[in-house]
Amino acid sequence: MSGTPGIDVPDSRGRTGLDRVGRDLTGNPDVVVRDVELLASGWHVLRRTTLDRRRRDGRWVTEQRETYDRGNGATLLLYDLERRSVLLTRQFRYPVYVNGHPDGLLLETAAGLLDDDAPEVAVRREAEEELGVSVGELEHVFDVFMSPGSVTERLHFYAAPYRPADRTGTGGGLEEEGEDIEVVELPFDQALAMVDDGRIADAKTVMLLQWAALRGPFRA
């Protein structure tokens, strides 16, 4: 079969038309998309878009932007208000390891891609898989574009209380997906101190811990 995987024939994940994304954008009259090239689609999708943009001084310029599309995601801070603790994960992240992190093992809030689920469904799924916790009522915190210069992902942030009795499994992630996740319970004040000294360096986790201290369950 002739053709280009991801464009007119299915790629390894069965996708086609990946070069069409962005061509029909009309929300900003000062931006006109001229062309979209598919650069890679091994798992997530890398595109190069050529666009005309009207600057604030009225001049039109032609620009190219590469965007990495990995889908949208959701993350969750689980907290025990009575014991003043939070439940996090620790796992190896090669991108941070290759960019100067001492061992690549990051402390993080549970998180994952939506995979066509609603954010609330996805974040409950991730809490079950990664932390072994059945989550009750969720609080929506905010939605954030995490790296808007190049990554399209919008991350949905949530928080929820938990108690030891809510632990329905050991967590650790899905072995068939190669996950190897350690469940880590920390006193909240210790977690905040680890943000200050750099031992917690994951953006979503820092944001949720600071929210919890300023406006969330541990605010003064």
Rank of each mutant, 00 (worst) to 15 (best):
L76M: 14
P187M: 01
E63W: 04
F142G: 08
L138F: 09
D69N: 04
A110W: 06
T170G: 15
S41R: 07
D8F: 08
D143P: 05
V135Y: 10
V96Q: 00
V195W: 03
I181N: 09
L214M: 11
P102Q: 13
V9P: 08
G149D: 08
A191I: 00
G216A: 04
S134M: 13
V184N: 00
R125P: 02
E120G: 04
P5N: 03
T62C: 04
R154C: 12
G73D: 10
R15L: 12
D24N: 15
D117W: 05
D197T: 05
D30W: 06
A74K: 10
E108H: 11
E153S: 04
E130A: 03
E179F: 07
L51T: 15
V141G: 01
G58R: 06
E177R: 08
V21F: 05
L39K: 00
R84F: 00
A193V: 02
G71P: 04
G172R: 01
P5V: 12
G73F: 09
D103N: 11
E128Q: 09
E126V: 10
P95C: 12
D196N: 07
H140W: 12
D30G: 14
R83I: 01
M194N: 03
E130P: 02
A213T: 02
E137A: 14
L46D: 10
D103R: 11
Y94N: 10
D57N: 12
L113M: 15
A212Y: 01
L186Y: 10
Q210L: 07
Q91S: 15
T205K: 05
V195I: 14
R13K: 13
Q91W: 04
R163S: 07
Q190R: 12
G58I: 05
L87G: 13
G178F: 02
K204D: 05
R83M: 00
V86D: 13
V123W: 03
L131Q: 07
Q91K: 06
D115W: 02
N72M: 06
P161D: 09
I181F: 05
E175W: 15
L208F: 08
P161V: 13
G17C: 08
L114T: 03
E126N: 11
L186K: 05
G14T: 11
G178D: 00
D35C: 06
L77P: 03
A201G: 15
G132A: 11
G71S: 02
S85P: 00
P102N: 13
L107P: 01
R65I: 15
W211M: 02
E63V: 09
P187F: 00
N28Q: 01
H156Y: 15
L88F: 15
G42M: 02
R47L: 02
R215C: 07
V121W: 06
V21D: 02
L76D: 07
L39V: 00
V151D: 06
D189H: 15
I200T: 02
G112R: 12
H156A: 09
P102D: 14
G6F: 10
L105S: 02
L209A: 05
E82K: 15
R124S: 04
L155A: 12
R59K: 14
V195A: 04
A165K: 12
Y79H: 09
A118I: 03
R20Q: 13
D80F: 08
H101P: 03
A165T: 07
D143F: 00
T152C: 00
